[in-house]
């Protein structure tokens, strides 16, 4: 589904990703963990072209993202993303936040888009909020709307960039539940998170990153219970 070969990313002189290679299979849930500054968010943002790779190759569902001839806007329709700060469109109400993609990008009718949006809102448990504005919702509710907004594009892959880091503790659960449901429905996902319990529960595979390198990857049980690398061991000793 996603193929990453020797991905490098530099911001000026700062090398953030120093050659990442991995593969994400159809319907696989990959959780990326690591200390802050390890490059895990940059890695995720490269996967939908929000950050341009300095070198290396990224292929998504057979389309080479790193090829300059690729229509990046077309490709992004198939790669949903949720941000740490939710980034709901502040001037639009909840329903409009979800319908604007299908209507303006996919040119679907208003009726069809609204019907889909209401379905998705019900799915994330916010059927009664469609007329509210983002600032009237709690962080957890906003993040669930953001998930619905991404799903409205019917993506093949979902990327999550620390989806619960900006949330009050009591709201973390409601967002993780929605993401967990998606995993059960067979959505292919890449999740950057600090929630180790969640990583262990929903992840099919865990990737540990540090200082721009992919240090270790494997099934959660192996990474968490029996990490092979020193850096993985010391990181997990601090967070678990």
């Amino acid at each position: 589904m996603i193929n990453v070969e020797n991905l490098r990313k530099s911001f000026g002189k700062l090398d953030v990703l120093k050659g990442i290679s991995t593969e994400i299979r159809h319907q696989e849930v990959v959780v990326v963990i690591g200390p802050s500054g390890s490059g895990k968010s940059t890695f995720l943002r490269c996967l939908n072209g929000l950050e341009e790779a300095t070198s290396g190759k990224i292929e998504i569902d057979g389309v080479e993202l790193t090829n300059p001839k690729t229509n990046i806007h077309e490709l992004r329709q198939h790669v949903g993303m949720c941000f740490q700060q939710f980034n709901l469109f502040r001037h639009l109400n909840i329903l409009q936040n979800i319908t604007i993609g299908p209507m303006k990008v996919l040119n679907k009718s208003k009726e069809e888009s609204e019907q889909l949006a209401r379905q998705l809102l019900k799915r994330v448990g916010l059927g009664d909020k469609e007329q509210n504005y983002p600032d009237e919702l709690s962080g957890g509710q906003q993040q669930r709307v953001a998930i619905a907004r991404a799903l409205a594009m019917k993506p093949k892959v979902m990327l999550f960039d620390e989806p619960t880091s900006a949330l009050d503790p009591e709201m973390v659960g409601e967002v993780l539940n929605v993401i967990g449901d998606l995993a059960e429905d067979g959505m292919t996902m890449v999740i950057v998170t600090h929630e180790m319990g969640f990583a262990r529960k929903v992840g099919d595979r865990v990737i540990f990153m540090d200082e721009g390198y992919l240090i270790e990857e494997g099934p959660p049980a192996e990474i968490f219970n029996n990490p092979q690398e020193k850096r993985t061991q010391s990181f997990l000793a601090k967070v678990l």
């Binding site: 929000l50 806007h73 992004r76 980034n87 469109f89 604007i100 993609g101 303006k104």
Partner: peptide
């Protein structure tokens, strides 16, 4: 973040 969110649902710069 507003621009990034718009980009992430496939909007062009113009849209």
């Amino acid at each position: 973040g507003q621009k990034e969110a718009a980009a992430s649902i496939g909007m062009t710069e113009y849209k």
